[in-house]
Amino acid sequence: MAVRTLLFLAALLVLALIAPLLIANRFLIDVLTLILFSAFLGQSWNILGGYAGQFSFGSVVFFGTGAYTSSILLMTFGIDAWIGAIAALFAGAAVGAFVGFLSFRYGLRGSYFALITLAFAEVFKVLANSVEFTGGGIGIFIEHEPGLARLQFDDPAGYYYIALALTVVSLAIAWWLERSRFGAYLKAIRENEDAAEALGVNAFRCKMYAIMISGAMGGVGGTFYAQKFLYIDPPIAYGVATSVEMLLVSIVGGMGTVFGPLVGSFVLHGVNEVTRHYIQTPGLSLIVYGLILIAIIGYLPNGLIGLFKGRARPKDAEDA
């Protein structure tokens, strides 16, 4: 990576670190927190969908399981949320392993994989609605007792820093994928699974690792959500909307790129805030989301990031 890019990223990180000190408007801090959080969840989708090419329509299943895991540990057993977050990480990875083992073992690819993940999310939603320990349809209310052990804060900046840390970690994971042999395997599987296998890549194992990493991230994200909003129920934990948002930010920003989800999240949430500011009608921002998704697929298949990378391409062509 060029020195200039590194300097730019370092400056960006410093700016992100001191942002809560510069911004007096606490609402704006909340918006930034959500943007970062959404970028984090998007990155979780991106690892499986963008790098490994396995499009999931039900990635919310990891998020919801994580949210329920830490919330049940906290409210039923009195276990602090930071331990809950670790439990949620493993729970998310376990659900990832479960869904992944079944889907990949039986060779589901492409649209079939998308559909089965959607169905898994649906099954989890119905189950969460029907069993006792999740609070059924009533959901779980989480007590607000600010403190680092509980990952709850009076000042929105507390949540902001946690979301920032999550985002930085997720960027680091994607960065590692870009550089590592494992990441190269995933990309090979994405481009042509049969060819990758023929070259000796264990596609099943790589896809399992990818879905488990994705699941672990989603699980931790669930804990963060529950501690911030202090309430979860089956539609929040396992609803389609979150799955869609996860893939939306990645695709809009640029699938299979390190900064795609972050860029996508900034743009989509920016659009959302602006439309909400001018027209206060339900649904309008989502209409815009849908149109952006269609336009990106139709005209910018590499996402917004592709706009910048596109310039380098003619040079590559000359080399070849």
Binding site: S111, V244, L247, L284, G290, L293, I294
Partner: peptide, 21 residues
């Protein structure tokens, strides 16, 4: 194929929220 899946997903979002609107 995957583009079609995503475009029809986008259409579903637009129609559903258009109806809501």
């Amino acid at each position: 194929d995957q583009n079609i899946l995503l475009i029809t997903l986008g259409l579903a979002i637009v129609f559903e929220n258009g109806a809501l609107f």
